[in-house]
């Protein structure tokens, strides 16, 4: 428990292997369109727990947008479950996993980890993929380390 708190204070994304892989799988599947979604977690904990892939209403290789009705449903649901969007992810399919000007202009969750995945080198296949995480606050981009934890195994087994 104490280690979670320390991790949060150092502004790092700590994410399970399963959730990390689920994001990449979604990005590969939707390539060449951008994929997007959220990992919700209990409010105030900063722990990403519930994987919620979203439909890219723009169905575009250069833009993503949550459908407005889906967005309302998502936030209602998180509110009812006392959750918040811990991770907001999307993919870039022809450029690096770095926030674009558009990404920055839309970023509106100062507490969220904005995860970007790039499928430019792997497409729908198994090739190399970029997975990076950022804080975006008031137009400023700060990359943060990503720590992947193997929760399904015993800590010492890895």
């Amino acid at each position: 428990m104490g280690s979670w708190r320390a991790v949060n204070l150092t502004r790092m994304l700590t994410i399970s292997r399963d959730l990390h892989d689920a994001i990449i799988e979604h990005a590969r599947r939707d390539h060449p369109d951008e994929a997007c979604g959220v990992i919700a977690g209990p409010a105030g904990t900063g722990r990403p727990e519930r994987f919620i892939p979203m439909l890219n209403a723009a169905r575009s290789p250069t833009f993503y947008e949550f459908d407005s009705a889906d967005l309302l449903r998502l936030y209602r649901e998180m509110d009812d479950r006392d959750e918040e969007p811990v991770v907001i992810y999307h993919s870039h399919t022809a450029t690096d996993a770095y926030p674009s000007r558009t990404d920055v202009s839309y970023a509106s969750e100062p507490d969220a980890h904005y995860v970007l995945v790039s499928t430019k080198d792997c497409g729908n296949g198994d090739g190399p993929v970029q997975f990076r995480s950022y804080r975006i606050v008031d137009g400023d981009i700060a990359e943060e380390p990503v720590r992947i934890v193997e929760v399904s195994k015993k800590p010492s087994a890895a």
Binding site: F63, L72, H90, S100, Y106
Partner: peptide, 12 residues
Amino acid sequence: VTILPAVAGGSA
């Protein structure tokens, strides 16, 4: 009335 920021972006 519910206000929500759009969740959007992209490489463009």
